[in-house]
């Protein structure tokens, strides 16, 4: 089972993503900010990260930059944001995100991208 780490300070958003992803058959872990996420990746290997931008202690950019410097297998990351500007998107890609998706995300929007980045997407 593919493992996904959901990093968001909002419990509602974490639960929302957990429900979508678990229903789709993924194993979901959560972290409440970038710092906790860095601890989590010490303990386990993940196949995908869903990263919020704005978080206390360590934000999404900071987490991605740190992640991409770790000597571990580099899994794709989706940055989830409320900002639609090109600058924000650029900043996310620079930091190490592989996709930039805008909130709010509907399940039918999120899942194809998650599956695509996990090599599990099939033409319907």
């Amino acid at each position: 089972m593919k493992r996904i780490l959901v990093i968001d300070d909002a419990a509602t958003v974490r639960l929302y993503h957990r429900e979508i992803l678990e229903n789709a058959g993924f194993d979901v872990s959560e972290a409440i900010n970038g710092l906790e996420a860095l601890e989590k990746i010490e303990e386990a290997t993940f196949d995908l990260y869903l990263v919020d931008i704005n978080m206390p202690k360590l934000d999404g950019y900071g987490f991605l930059r740190a992640l991409r410097q770790r000597p571990i297998p580099q899994a794709p990351a989706i940055m989830i944001s409320t900002e639609s500007s090109a600058n924000d998107r650029q900043a996310a890609l620079v930091a190490g995100a592989n996709l930039y998706i805008l909130k709010p995300i509907k399940p039918e929007q999120l899942l194809p991208h998650v599956r695509g980045l996990l090599g599990e997407w099939q033409q319907p």
């Binding site: 991409r68 297998p73 990351a77 890609l93 620079v94 592989n98 695509g116 090599g119």
Partner: peptide
């Protein structure tokens, strides 16, 4: 787009690996 970025950050290697992982997944599909 990511590969077209011209910066040279400390985390470039990791970023490249992640891109390769993403590409590999997409092609697996």
């Amino acid at each position: 787009e990511i590969l077209a970025l011209e910066d040279q950050p400390d985390w470039l290697q990791g970023r490249l690996r992640a891109v390769a992982a993403s590409l590999q997944a997409a092609f697996a599909c």
